[in-house]
Design a protein around this nucleic acid. Structure first.
Lengths: 217, 217
DNA sequence: GAACATTACGGTTCGCGTAAGTATA
DNA sequence: TATACTTACGCGAACCGTAATGTTC
């Protein structure tokens, strides 16, 4: 059973015409026919009185039962979509360069509360354009490598870290690991708390956990 | 979005293992993997923390939101299935021979209330085996053609009807149209009322409406 | 190596649009 | 004839199982 088919069905019950439903959803008329046939086949019952004599079609009794439930199902699904969407929008977005994401972040992660992840989403970011995207507001904070230009509006915190090794055993050249956010972003107090916890987690992690990282190189 | 995928998801949240879910639903393990990937793709979010280190997997925050709604959606759907199924079982089943179904029943139908169809389902039946099936309880009443043997347990009512013509214009040989039900079925008073309405509808129809039928031969 | 999940691949099914068919007014 | 639905058909996507690959213990 596809929820899409139920949406067609609700619309059909409301509009009373296959062709109008097809227009509403921008699909062909046969698409609606077939969707309704799928429903009837899956539920093994007639749902719609296709009375060609009269203009209007009517729902059978099982059709009315389905209508009642389909409304709730579709509403519930849309609500799920909405809530998930909103939840994603409200989250802090932490930009990580690829190397940071796989080599350092796992250690930091352990020091963040579950509740914290309720409000934070991480996303990998191209190191080249990261600062620009931060200032555009596409990210709320960054954890990236490479030396950064000093900018008045940004807070940049250097994070001590052990060297990384490749599998050959040769250490990669040393580089800087930085935590960056816009100074004025702390005007939002929720955000300030979150950033504080993130900083705290990095501070807690650096002592011992970063050492563990080298095992996975 | 397929409701099947949501059922997998609920089960996964409960059992905590892809392979156990696949066993429960008798599908292969990759089927579950792919179903979960479909959900994540459609909702454009991560739902499941695939933490290979630990035994258990965990739901992300959006995953928990989906879980809450998925429970309701699946329950609602199953309830719809149940109600429709039960509704079908509770209905009176009226057996019609093929010729009756297309030539006579439409006229009778008009005299039956909408509410009546809530409790009656019609089904075509092979005239040869109809009586036998009636006595087995597979039908509650019959509207069939042909001469019938008199049986003690059956009530047989002859229905007057106009002759039928084929398109060539030649009338078919005359035949008997009978309404049949088991005498003891009237012990159920609901059933008695329904049968009474059906008899009434046939009586109302025969006066003029049966005449209309010949137009469609 | 054992257990578990993901990825790859081939075959079948499914869903859609176009076009043709059917039925009604 | 015009309108509305269904059926037929062909193409592309989706789904599933088997098999191969990865990963962790």
């Amino acid at each position: 059973m596809r929820i899409q088919d139920l949406e067609y069905y609700l619309s059909l019950a409301e509009l009373g015409s296959f062709s109008q439903v097809s227009k509403k959803f921008q699909v062909s008329q046969p698409t609606i026919s077939l969707a309704m046939q799928r429903l009837e086949k899956e539920l093994n019952t007639e749902l719609i009185w296709r009375d060609p004599g009269h203009q209007k079609l009517a729902l059978t009794h099982p059709g009315q039962i389905l209508l009642k439930h389909a409304k709730k199902i579709v509403a519930q699904y849309q609500q799920a979509e909405d809530e998930i969407q909103k939840e994603a929008e409200q989250k802090l977005v932490l930009g990580l360069s690829e190397i940071v994401d796989f080599a350092y972040f796992p250690s930091i992660e352990e020091h963040l509360s579950d509740h914290f992840f309720t409000h934070l989403r991480k996303e990998t970011v191209n190191a080249e354009t990261a600062l620009e995207q931060l200032q555009k507001g596409q990210f709320d904070a960054l954890l990236i490598t490479g030396s950064l230009p000093i900018e008045e509006k940004l807070t940049i915190i250097d994070i001590p870290h052990p060297p990384l090794h490749l599998s050959a055993g040769k250490p990669l050249p040393d580089f800087q690991l930085s935590f960056v956010y816009q100074k004025d972003s702390l005007e939002n107090s929720d955000l300030a708390l979150i950033l504080e916890e993130l900083q705290g987690a990095i501070a807690s992690a650096q002592a011992k956990d970063f050492a563990l990282i080298s095992k996975s190189e």
